Simulated assay, not measured.
Amino acid sequence: MKAYFANGLFSQADFDFNAKLVAQLRTAFPELTIYLPQENAAINDKQAYADSKMIAQADTDELTSSQLVIAILDGITIDAGVASEIGVAYAKHIPIVGLYTDSRQQGATNSKKLAALQTIAENQFHYVNLYTTGLIKLNGDITNNFADLTSSIRKYLS
């Protein structure tokens, strides 16, 4: 089985996170071939040149030949490329497993945090675009930790 790993890759933090998480997933699932776009030097060597059509074609080919998409939902907003990849996967009926680790999702029963929602600019929680997360939930799962991520992936490997 082949999986497409979707996350931003332009900051050193994202690049390193992607490499670390994909290495862990490759160890946990040796039967799973994971395409990590940052490893594709033909389109992502930033010292070289690849135009928008080259990037779109290469990543879409990899995405549509996959049987699973693993999408990272963290960040100020979902990365624009990741949101596009989620849309393509949904349209092609490719299951999607999202990983959303933002710590601001904690405390959902804290009465002070809930009350703060009534005060302008005091939202204690993080917002994730509901359309994009809805596409995932209609065709997959959203998890918030590595153990649940691996359980969800395992479900799709069966």
Rank of each mutant, 00 (worst) to 15 (best):
I70A: 11
L9S: 05
I96R: 10
L114S: 05
D102E: 02
S151N: 14
N139Y: 12
F5R: 00
G107N: 13
K53D: 06
T119H: 02
N40S: 12
T33H: 01
Y90L: 08
V88K: 05
Q57H: 10
G98W: 03
Q12D: 14
F29T: 04
E31I: 03
G75D: 11
A121Q: 11
A13S: 14
D59N: 05
I94M: 02
F125Q: 05
N144Y: 10
S66K: 08
D45Q: 05
F5M: 09
G140W: 07
F15L: 12
F5N: 06
L99P: 07
Y35W: 12
A19Y: 11
T132I: 08
Q67H: 09
K137S: 12
A80C: 14
Q124N: 01
E39L: 07
L21E: 00
T132R: 09
F5V: 02
V97G: 00
F146A: 04
E85I: 03
I142N: 09
D74W: 05
D61K: 06
A42N: 15
Q12R: 10
Q47C: 13
L138T: 04
G107Q: 12
L135D: 01
T33N: 00
S111E: 14
L63K: 07
Q24Y: 12
G107P: 10
T132V: 15
G87V: 11
S151P: 00
Y131T: 10
L149N: 03
F17T: 10
D79V: 04
K113S: 14
D51A: 02
Q47F: 15
I34N: 02
N144D: 15
S66Q: 01
I94G: 00
Q67Y: 13
V82P: 07
K155P: 01
V97K: 01
D79C: 06
K155W: 12
A83N: 08
T143Q: 05
E31N: 02
L117C: 09
S103A: 01
E62I: 07
I70Q: 04
I120S: 12
K155F: 06
M54S: 15
I136E: 00
Q12M: 04
S158Y: 13
A50E: 07
A13W: 11
S158F: 15
D16F: 09
D59F: 01
R104D: 09
T143E: 08
F10D: 05
S66C: 05
Q124P: 10
V22H: 01
G107M: 13
Y127R: 15
K46F: 14
G75R: 01
F29D: 02
I142V: 11
A91S: 09
G98V: 02
K92V: 03
T101A: 14
L36D: 01
S65E: 03
A116S: 05
K155D: 07
A50F: 01
F125G: 08
K53S: 07
N129Q: 14
G75K: 08
R154H: 11
I72E: 06
L36C: 02
F10K: 08
V88I: 14
E85Y: 03
A115W: 05
S103Q: 12
N129I: 04
S52I: 11
S66P: 00
A41P: 00
Y49F: 04
S151R: 15
I153D: 02
K113M: 13
S158R: 05
Q105W: 03
